[in-house]
Amino acid sequence: MNDMRIADRSVDANAAKISARDVNVHYGESHALKGVSIEIHDRAVTAFIGPSGCGKSTFLRCLNRMNDTVAIARVTGTILLEGEDIYDRRVDPVQLRAKVGMVFQKPNPFPKSIYDNVAYGPRIHGLVRGKAELDEVVEQSLKKAALWNEVKDRLHAPGTGLSGGQQQRLCIARAVATSPEVLLMDEPCSALDPIATAQVEELIDELRSNFSVVIVTHSMQQAARVSQKTAFFHLGNLVEYGDTPDIFTNPRDPRTESYITGRIG
Score class of each variant (00 low, 15 high):
His125Val: 11
Lys131Gly: 00
Gly121Leu: 11
Val137Tyr: 05
Leu96His: 06
Ser113Cys: 08
Gln95Asn: 08
Arg129Cys: 02
Lys106Ile: 14
Glu133Tyr: 02
Gln105Pro: 09
Leu134Gln: 03
Arg97Gln: 06
Val128Ile: 10
Ile114Arg: 00
Asp116Ser: 09
Lys131Pro: 00
Gly101Asp: 07
Lys112Asn: 13
Gly126Ser: 05
Lys131Ile: 06
Val118Arg: 03
Asp135Arg: 09
Ile114Ser: 00
Ala119Cys: 13
Gly130Ala: 13
Lys131Gln: 06
Asp135Trp: 01
Ile114Tyr: 06
Gly121Phe: 08
Leu96Asn: 00
Ala119Val: 05
Arg97Glu: 06
Lys112Gln: 15
Leu96Ile: 05
Phe110Thr: 09
Val128Ala: 15
Gln95Glu: 11
Arg123Asn: 00
Ser113Tyr: 05
Lys99His: 03
Arg97Ser: 08
Arg123Thr: 08
Gln105Glu: 11
Ser113Gln: 04
Val103Phe: 13
Arg129Met: 04
Lys131Tyr: 00
Leu127His: 02
Ala119Ser: 13
Gly101Leu: 14
Pro107Asn: 13
Gly130Glu: 06
Val137Thr: 14
Gly126Gln: 04
Gly101Ile: 03
Lys106Tyr: 13
Lys112Val: 11
Asp116Pro: 01
Ala98Met: 15
Ile124Val: 15
Tyr120Phe: 15
Phe104Asp: 12
Gly126Asn: 05
His125Ile: 13
Tyr115Gly: 14
Val103Thr: 06
Leu96Gln: 06
Gly130Arg: 10
Leu127Trp: 04
Phe110Ala: 14
Val118Met: 05
